[in-house]
Design a protein around this nucleic acid. Structure first.
Lengths: 131, 131
DNA sequence: TATAACAATGTTATAATATAACAAATAATA
DNA sequence: TATTATTTGTTATATTATAACATTGTTATA
């Protein structure tokens, strides 16, 4: 099921490596700059890798920041159910892995009784350091 | 507290009117195209109005779609705590107003005990029609 | 009513983010 | 091997968003 790193293509590995080495989300053009020494020259090469890595859950996109972060939560690799806390001052981003929260959201029903197993939640506030 | 429509500036009113008339989220350049007959000619005029309208809660940005939707939920006008359901097929977007959900999320604590009163949640799935 | 302070506007240019399209190379499978 | 699908490389361009600055309008109050 879960695609392992070994099965990634060359460019996908290069892009994932860069993102995994970063503690914080990386922007696409920053990734591009960083992988140019590895031979990736043009945006589509990076965006294609990003698309695939998001699809298989190895990374997530922080939508409000247009940035990409490595997934360190094996549980969400397949589900595409993600939650993050974002510090509005220092832009520190942490993935939240709370089975309680994910259960609550997966079971949430809207007014028409619809459920959603796919979601993205971004919390905003000030982190410990910035408070 | 809640800023009323009367107190909006000319451009802010024009942009809000367009968005309120649309059942679905509108993209910035689509708004720009629509307000050109009203004299707004350049992106900054639209983006400035959008920024302000988001700030005061009259509209929300659907981050995953880079689009803007009018707020029909007076409760979130100030809080900036938002939730949406998005149909991945027809792109229909609905704002979710569930006091249960908002209470749950406002009270949620991460591993360090942090709370967040500001958040954005986007649920993805297929709407009734598309299922 | 002057005038200061601030908010909003108009304008040009450009930055930042992302995709279309197509040819060539590589890998997987029958 | 022949076929199919995936990945890559490449150029060009589309889409989303902001910087910078001069001007105008609004508000508050001295």
């Amino acid at each position: 099921m879960t695609q392992k790193k070994e099965y990634l293509s060359k460019n996908q590995k290069i892009v994932l490596d860069i993102i995994e080495k970063s503690a914080q989300p990386m922007k696409a053009y920053s990734i591009l700059f960083n992988v140019q020494k590895k031979g990736l020259k043009a945006p589509p090469q990076v965006y294609r890798a990003l698309d695939k890595l998001v699809e298989i859950g190895k990374i997530h996109k922080i939508e409000s920041r247009n940035a990409f972060i490595a997934c360190r939560n094996s549980a969400c690799t397949i589900t595409n159910a993600t939650a993050f806390s974002i510090c509005e001052s220092c832009e520190d981003v942490k993935e939240i892995s709370s089975s309680k929260l994910s259960k609550y959201l997966s079971n949430f029903q809207d007014k028409e009784g619809m459920k959603f197993n796919k979601y993205n939640l971004e919390f905003f506030g000030l982190c410990k350091k910035c408070k």
